[in-house]
Design a protein around this nucleic acid. Structure first.
Lengths: 234, 234
DNA sequence: TAAAAAGTGTTGTTTTTACAACAAATATAT
DNA sequence: ATATATTTGTTGTAAAAACAACACTTTTTA
């Protein structure tokens, strides 16, 4: 059973838990059982705090319950790149855990005050002795999340595969427009973050955006974009 | 039950099926039951034949039983890029199926004579009425595959995030060396394919490789590489 | 609300890339 | 075995990107 402290935490955070894609179909009773089963720990992080540190041994899979963070990778030469963003309901570590990795290959850093659920990797992956169907449903939900993450990575790859900054921008903005089903849309990055995401120099990208605006291909203000698709295709 | 034709096929290909990560733990009886459950079809493709065509409606998830292929994406401007390679035991379509996509976003093309198993998307994803545990084991295996695919995409993203061709090459070759646990290793691409994979101009990359060889950073012949790690770090 | 911090746009210079064209080497098919 | 197709290395040129420096704007915070 849960310790008293854990029960208090659980009661406090159950609503957040219930709102995630992983635990959405679970009852309070099931959830509580899984908390025990997965050896969960709740933990609150301040902005800029490390939730996971690159290189540390993988013990847990994390689930963001409140707030958000970035997944950051530092390569051998010290270059920092943002691999992805994590929002409420997102998980990190599932792939590495399933693939049998030993160490985290990225750091996860809170970009605001963030509540995180830690779930023991082994407990989550290996079906419990009694083969509970709650566990199965969590795995099915995890599968959907990993699949979606996969598709996000494929999207990013599509953009990064383009050779020029302009093509990268158009690939990204085109997709955003398609997703929004509109020529008007809002992007989830500011300009600096977008440059990081697309792995291009910020000032060069800013310059390219200006040119495209002058040429009438796009219009934008802050995160609001308007793409003139008719002018772009051919 | 299976039609006679299907039984013949099944008997002929059971060994290949058994050798995959998806069906490894299943008995012949279980496999046969799943063949029925997933409405499977076996199909043989010649080199350069389309196994899956970009834009077609997603009906099946595929599993490569013999041979191999490439996943190829053509963007709106007609640029072709190799998204990944598929080898014996690899699957394609799982992520899109789980994420609820309607159409294939890539084409899959056989690079040699290739045997493919088609499995009905709906049957595979939705647990069967009797909640058979074979089905669960297949899903668990699929999960591992998707997780691994995810990590492959992350690797590629790491390389593509580098700004110069040299950095991309070193990122890729460095990883290959790490994986091989040796300064000597073989890469799964020829030079032209590697340029495609890294999304750089082939001739420019060839040129860069030559320079790096002259500078004594690497040595190579065909697909055999030798990386002088000591000269590279710092 | 003032001060500090973070983000943005612009410009010029240097470095790197894409592109095109071609010869040489290698692999493939008949 | 030979012809044919594909792959590879090299070079020069034009285009594009990175980089650095700076002024200006917006956001954050104390």
């Amino acid at each position: 059973m849960l310790f008293l402290q854990q029960i208090y935490e659980f009661m406090e955070y159950f609503q957040e838990l219930k709102a995630t894609k992983i635990f959405d179909s679970a009852s309070e009773f099931d959830c509580q059982a899984m908390m025990f089963c997965f050896k969960t720990k709740f933990k609150m992080f301040d902005k800029n705090e490390n939730i996971i540190t690159q290189g540390n041994r993988i013990e847990d899979i994390i689930l963001i319950l409140k707030g958000g963070g970035i997944v950051e990778n530092i390569d051998i030469l010290g270059n920092i790149s943002i691999v992805m963003q994590l929002k409420k309901g997102d998980v990190y570590g599932v792939e590495s855990a399933y693939a049998g990795d030993e160490y985290y290959k990225d750091s996860v850093i809170a970009t605001e005050k963030t509540l995180v659920l830690f779930m023991n990797k082994h407990r989550l992956i290996n079906p419990c002795e009694n083969r509970c169907k709650r566990h199965d449903s969590v795995i099915k939900n995890l599968m959907r999340l990993v699949a979606e993450s996969n598709l996000k990575l494929l999207d990013k790859l599509t953009h990064l595969s383009k050779k020029t900054t302009r093509e990268k921008l158009l690939s990204y903005l085109g997709l955003m427009s398609e997703r929004a089903k509109s020529d008007y849309f809002e992007i989830p990055f500011n300009i600096t973050e977008l440059a990081n995401y697309l792995s291009v120099d910020r000032s060069a990208m800013s310059n390219e955006l200006s040119k495209m605006k002058k040429e009438g291909l796009i219009d934008y203000d802050k995160r609001q974009f308007h793409i003139f698709n008719s002018k772009i295709k051919y």
